[in-house]
Write a protein that binds this DNA or RNA. Structure first.
Lengths: 342, 342
DNA sequence: TTGTAAGCGTTATCAG
DNA sequence: CTGATAACGCTTACAA
C-alpha cells in the first residue's frame, strides 16, 4: 500500500545524452531547444544520442528551470455538455499547433470548487488561464492579479470589461428569440432557465427575455430555474405545465434543456409546434436532429474557441491582454416554433 | 514579441513561509505534506504564514523533487463525442477524490498522433496513463514498458490480455443486436461502421455482425466505412441507400452514426421502423430523444470510468496491474426497430 | 519533532 | 559556439 514513486525511476537524462554525444550538458540542452544555435555536427550527435537512448525530457525539470510549463488551464462548468466539449475540442486543436497542452478542469457549477480549481492550476504553473464567464469570486480575481497570471474570460460579452473578455451577447440573442415568438403571435410564454447565481450567461439570457417580453407586451408567466441539462429541461417542463396553463411558447436557456422539454412535451402527446413552441440556445449538433428540429440561437462556440486560443497564444508571446470581442449570434428558425394557437 | 517568462515571477516560496513562521524549510514542508508529523504549534504557525502570504506551492518543484505530479493522462480519440466526454467527466470526478488531475489529449483517430501524445504525457511525467482500446503501436507499448509507466487499456474486453484491460465485449454486444433483428424477421441488412484500422472496437463490432448474420442466415449486403460522427452516419446512409436496395435494417457502429442515418432516412421520407430499422451502439443520452427513439446497446461508460479511475488509484498505491474486467452491456429496444417489411 | 543539506533534471548565465 | 556552474523550489534522508 505504499505510495508509488512515480515513473521517473530511471529514464535517461539530458546529461546521459550529452555524454553519449560527447558534448557538454549545455550544448545538448541548446541543441534541443535552439537547433540553429549549435554546430550541425553537434546537433547531429545529440540527435543520434537522443534517438538511441530513447531520451524524453523531464517536463518538471524543464518547468522549474524555465518557469513555463507549456500548459494552459481552462476551468469550465462541466465537460458533459456538448457545448463545452466542442469548446475544449477546438481549443485543444488551436493550442496544439503551438505545442501547448490544455489542462481542463470542471467545477460542476460550484463556486467554491471553481476557486480551488483555479488555485490548483496556478499551483501546476499553467502558463495561462481560461475561465468561462465574467463573474468570478474576488479571491480568484485578486489571486490572478497578484501573481500576474495571463488569463481571459470567455462566453459572454454582455457588459464585459474592455479587455480580456471574449464571447457573444446573450441578452441580444435572447431578444431575437422573443422577437421571433412575438412575430408568431405568442402572448403567454414561460422560461426554463438555469440558476443565475454566479452565472451571468443565465442572468443575461433571462434579462433578454424579460426585456423583449415587456417591449412586445408578452406575458412571461413563469420562470423555472432548473439544471442546464436534458433532465433539467424535463423537470422544467413539468413544473411549468404549459398546455394546462395556456402557455404557448417555452423559452429554454440551453439546447439541452430544450431537448428535455421537447421530449417531455412529446411524451405527453402535445403536438409541436401547433400546441406549443419551444426554443433553445446554443445550436448544438443535436438541435437539428430532434423532431421537430429545434429553433435556437447559434452560439459561435468553435470560433470562440479559436479566438480564445489565439488570444492566449498572443499573450504568451507578450502581446498583452486582448481587447474584448463580441462574436455574432444568429437565430436559427426550425420546426419547433410556429404560430401561437388561438 | 519576446516570449513570456511565465507567471512564477515573484510568488512566495516555501522558504518564505518557513521564515515567516519561524521554522525551518523542512518543518514547513512537512507541515504541509504530513500535518500529523509536526507539533500543533508548528502546524499553526505554518498555516498562518501560508494564509497571510498567499502561498501556493510550485507543482514543478514538487514534481521534480518527489517524482510525482499527481496528474494522470488519458489519450482518447476525441472529446467531441458524448461517449468520451462522459468518460472523461466521470473519470475526473473519480480521480479528483484522490487529489489527482486528469490531463486529456485527443488524437482524432490518428495513430501517429497518438504516439506523439503519449510521449508528451510521459514527458509531462504523468503518474499513470489511460489509453482507449487495446490496439496500440509497438513504439508506444515498448516505451511504456521501458519506463515502467503504470497504465491501463480501456473500452474493449474482446480478446483482451489478462491484465490491465477494462471494458466490455463489443462482439457479444453486436451479436445481441443482430439476434434482435433476426427475431424481427430481417433478412437483408447493411452496416454503417467505423474505420477498423487501428480500432479494435470497430473491428469487433463488425465481426459480431458478421458472425451473428451468418448464424441467422441474414445477408449482410454492404458495409460502409465512415467517420464515427453524425455526418458520417448521413454519408453512410446515402452510400448504402437502403430502401432502394431492399435493405430492411441498418446496423450502425455508434449512436452518433445512427443519429445521422436516422436523420437522413427521415429527410428522405422513409418511415421508421416500418420501412427500415436502424440500430445504434453506446446509448448516449440523445439516443432516447430521437424519433423514433433509438434501439441500441447500452455501453457501461460511467461504470467503466469509475472502475478505471479506481484501478489507476490502486496502481498508484502500489497494488499492481489490475486484472482485466468485462462489464456487461445491454440491448435497449426502442422504436427505431420493428418487424421487417415484406 | 526539527533543522540541515543533498539532490531532482533542466535552463540560463557567462566566461572561454 | 561550447562548457562549467549557478539557479529553479521543493522533498527527503539523516543528523541533531
Amino acid at each position: 500500500m505504499k505510495k508509488s514513486k512515480g515513473n521517473l525511476a530511471s529514464r535517461p537524462r539530458l546529461s546521459d545524452v550529452a555524454n553519449a554525444a560527447g558534448v557538454s550538458l549545455g550544448a545538448a540542452s541548446k541543441a534541443l531547444s535552439a537547433p540553429d544555435a549549435v554546430r550541425p555536427a553537434t546537433l547531429r550527435a545529440v540527435r543520434r544520442a537522443v534517438e538511441s537512448l530513447g531520451y524524453i525530457p523531464s517536463g518538471a525539470a524543464r518547468a522549474l528551470a524555465s518557469r513555463s510549463t507549456g500548459m494552459v488551464g481552462v476551468v469550465l462548468p462541466t465537460i458533459n455538455n456538448p457545448v463545452y466539449a466542442t469548446f475544449v475540442h477546438e481549443l485543444q486543436k488551436t493550442l496544439a499547433r503551438q505545442g501547448l497542452h490544455l489542462l481542463a478542469l470542471a467545477h460542476e457549477y460550484d463556486r467554491e470548487s471553481e476557486i480551488r480549481l483555479i488555485e490548483r492550476l496556478v499551483s501546476r504553473s499553467v502558463d495561462a488561464l481560461i475561465m468561462i464567464g465574467t463573474d468570478h469570486d474576488d479571491r480568484t480575481t485578486s489571486l490572478l492579479k497578484k501573481i500576474g497570471m495571463p488569463h481571459v474570460h470567455c462566453w459572454s460579452s454582455d457588459k464585459a470589461p474592455r479587455q480580456g473578455a471574449l464571447g457573444f451577447n446573450n441578452q441580444a440573442a435572447m431578444i431575437k428569440v422573443v422577437d421571433h415568438l412575438a412575430d408568431l403571435g405568442h402572448k403567454r410564454v414561460a422560461m426554463v432557465g438555469g440558476e443565475t447565481w454566479n452565472n451571468e450567461r443565465a442572468q443575461w439570457r433571462l434579462r433578454g427575455v424579460k426585456k423583449a417580453a415587456a417591449v412586445h407586451k408578452i406575458e412571461l408567466v413563469e420562470v423555472a430555474t432548473v439544471p442546464l441539462t436534458i433532465a433539467g429541461g424535463q423537470i422544467g417542463y413539468r413544473q411549468i405545465d404549459p398546455v394546462r396553463n395556456k402557455i404557448t411558447a417555452l423559452i429554454c436557456g440551453t439546447d439541452l434543456q430544450a431537448a428535455g422539454a421537447l421530449h417531455a412535451a412529446r411524451t405527453e402527446g402535445v403536438v409541436l409546434p401547433d400546441q406549443l413552441s419551444i426554443t433553445g440556445f446554443d445550436d448544438i449538433e443535436m438541435a437539428a436532429l430532434l423532431s421537430p428540429a429545434l429553433t435556437t440561437i447559434r452560439a459561435p462556440i468553435a470560433e470562440l474557441a479559436v479566438t480564445t486560443g489565439n488570444a492566449i497564444i498572443g499573450m504568451l508571446q507578450g502581446e498583452g491582454i486582448p481587447k474584448s470581442l463580441s462574436l455574432p449570434t444568429e437565430l436559427i428558425v426550425r420546426q419547433s416554433t410556429g404560430r401561437a394557437p388561438d
